[in-house]
Design a binder for these strands. Sequence first.
DNA 1: TTAATTTGTAACAAAATTGTAACATTTAAA
DNA 2: TTTAAATGTTACAATTTTGTTACAAATTAA
Lengths: 226, 226
Amino acid sequence: MNGRIFIIEDEPSIIQLVQHNLEKNGFIVSSSLNGNDGLKELKKFQPDLLLLDWMLPDLSGIEICKNIRKDNSFKNLPVIMLTAKGEEEDKIKGLDSGVDDYLTKPFSFNELMARIKAVLRRSNPNTVSDNLKFDDLMLDRIEKRVYRDDQEIKLGPTEFRLLEFFLTNPKRVYSRDQILESVWPNNVNVESRTIDVHIRRLRQSVNLKNKKELIRTVRSSGYSLI
Amino acid sequence: MNGRIFIIEDEPSIIQLVQHNLEKNGFIVSSSLNGNDGLKELKKFQPDLLLLDWMLPDLSGIEICKNIRKDNSFKNLPVIMLTAKGEEEDKIKGLDSGVDDYLTKPFSFNELMARIKAVLRRSNPNTVSDNLKFDDLMLDRIEKRVYRDDQEIKLGPTEFRLLEFFLTNPKRVYSRDQILESVWPNNVNVESRTIDVHIRRLRQSVNLKNKKELIRTVRSSGYSLI
DNA sequence: TTAATTTGTAACAAAATTGTAACATTTAAA
DNA sequence: TTTAAATGTTACAATTTTGTTACAAATTAA
């Protein structure tokens, strides 16, 4: 079992217990003790699942959840809500606000584990494979859209395929031949220089102002994301 | 809210309570008092969701659940398990054996309702309602009518099927091949360009004045709602 | 039956995308 | 520094893709 799990919870003892046990089970885990930090950290951490406490010192779990759903790159992030006393109205609000499941404290770790498994099983087939993420970039294969920090970036077909290709292995340097083979239809013959031009076009679209360069040129080798 | 719900539960009082309330909320409900009957009735009833008691006179809920999963037509049937005392080991087994959620008796009807909504929303966005909605658009499958902001829009048969198809997954980009397969009868052969013309017709009908474009063209990929 | 509607395709128009050449700039080696 | 190779940049014509219209055939309703 693996995946990235983020926890927003203000009781350190719970964090410690859960985090330790999840890591023992092969998950990569990170956490925040309050809502505002959590929202920031989330983007960096890029989790596959979020454990969210209902009562937090600053924002309520519901508010965080709604906030998250607005963010394009977290539209489909599964959320399990942790509620303190299991007041019924709360539970319902939680489920209606886009929470995938909830758990009433105190809970056993086994129970939590079962819920996580169930939620990941349901949500993974869609989100994990269909959204490619790297840094602040997100490519949605289903909707054929690309965002950088929530701002949509319009790409032409070849630019899109090119970026999609790089995103399957970001950081890896691809030669022009490799790029040609994977991004262009099998039979066509195009000059290797053509790639340079498309890279240029992709750069132009993707490099919004105030953003760092996203495509690296490796002289005499090829290109990669960075 | 509508959909078909089947209940397998040996306590008549619970059946009565749940069935009555679900029907009041627009669901079509049927039930059985034991596992073997239930399995038979299921096929006839073709539910969208199953409420399954953990302890039954003949088969256990788990056994029924495993049985159901073997049947191809019920592989994806969402199941909510009703457990009597909430013994933890049981819960875990339940979730691992393909149950989508569970509820510990005694439960309130509101809580049950929230769970049902959540599970149906996840598993089968279509069956939850026969009305497909997206933005200010509404398609009534029963009456075969389409409205935009309460104003009825008259569509030809193909336009209707086309829109219905898009509405099952709005925002998702479909290729012309996918559209052909899903919207046209299986055997017919029509040119891919034909779709473009129908899209144009659908656009013309659906794009009332003062309204934003509803159909997005994704060059070299296909179309989607937006 | 006739009339009306729906349907698929062809033909042309408009728009977007693509590949390449030509020239500019950068980089690394001599 | 000079030089050659590699890459960046720009412009543009050719090609591809999509939009639009018209129309005849097919289907349905009257």
